[in-house]
Amino acid sequence: MTAIEFQVTFDAHDPGRQALFWAEALGYRLQPPPGDFTSWDDALDAWGVPPEARNSRSAIVPEEGESGPRVFFQQVPEEKSVKNRVHLDLRVAPGLSGDDRAAAHEEAAERLVAAGATVVRRVPPSQEMGDGSFIVMADPEGNEFCLD
């Protein structure tokens, strides 16, 4: 079977802010405007999108030459009400263990807190998980993700 292209979609109150946060978190960039448009404002002007509707969606894509799914943010009116059933694990410490793993987690957590995330809890290594420590975080709108 041929692999299916997919994107990850987040419901959001502020798609622009969420896009900026997740671009920082994932090492992505805002999706550039299409075609010959030099900015999104030019594109939205040409399409007749009123200013009050311009933050209804946003998207981020991998940096040029990198691969990964497009991440799309769509504005919704309702609040997040329960724990996510699906979440992203950001692999910030692949191949590391012990103090090096913990340091990579803390460095990433500091960077993401500065970008608007919050630390929910730190999960230390355990006998059941071996060296599998991780940090549970929430993005600016409360969506949980892990630093793994």
Rank of each mutant, 00 (worst) to 15 (best):
E5N: 10
Q75I: 03
D148H: 10
H87P: 01
F6K: 01
I4P: 00
R17P: 10
A3L: 14
P62I: 04
P94K: 09
F145V: 02
D42I: 01
E5L: 12
F73D: 01
E110K: 15
E107T: 15
D139K: 03
P69S: 07
A12E: 07
E107D: 14
A109D: 00
A19S: 08
M129P: 00
V82P: 00
L88E: 06
A109F: 05
F134E: 09
A102Y: 06
E24F: 00
L30G: 10
E106Q: 14
S126K: 07
G27I: 10
F10M: 05
A115L: 03
H13P: 02
A108K: 14
G35S: 11
S39M: 04
Y28M: 04
A23K: 09
P32C: 07
E141S: 07
E66M: 12
V113M: 09
D148M: 15
L90W: 11
C146D: 13
E128F: 10
L147C: 08
P69E: 02
V61C: 11
V113F: 13
R70H: 07
A23G: 03
T118F: 01
E128Q: 13
A138N: 05
N84Q: 12
A138Q: 09
D11W: 02
R54C: 00
P15Y: 12
H105G: 11
A114M: 02
M129R: 13
Q18M: 15
E66Y: 12
S97Q: 13
P125M: 07
Q74S: 14
D148C: 13
V86H: 06
E64K: 11
P69I: 02
D11G: 14
H13G: 15
D99P: 10
F37N: 15
P32I: 01
V49Y: 02
A138L: 02
D45Y: 05
G95I: 04
D131A: 12
C146E: 14
P77I: 04
E141R: 00
R91E: 15
P34R: 10
R57N: 13
E78A: 07
V92D: 03
D14A: 15
P51H: 08
T2K: 12
W40F: 09
A103H: 11
V49W: 06
D45F: 01
P140T: 02
W47A: 14
T118C: 00
G16Y: 02
E144F: 06
S58T: 04
P32E: 13
A108C: 09
V123Q: 11
V8Q: 00
L147F: 12
P33F: 09
G35Y: 05
G142M: 04
G27V: 06
T118V: 13
I4E: 06
M129K: 09
V49L: 07
R121G: 02
A53Q: 14
P51A: 14
A93V: 08
Q74E: 15
A3Q: 14
L88G: 00
K80M: 08
H105W: 09
E66D: 12
P77A: 13
A108Q: 14
M137F: 09
P34S: 11
A19D: 04
D41Q: 13
N143F: 12
P124W: 10
S39H: 01
V82S: 05
P33S: 06
Q127D: 15
G95P: 07
R101W: 05
E141C: 05
R85K: 13
E144T: 08
G98L: 05
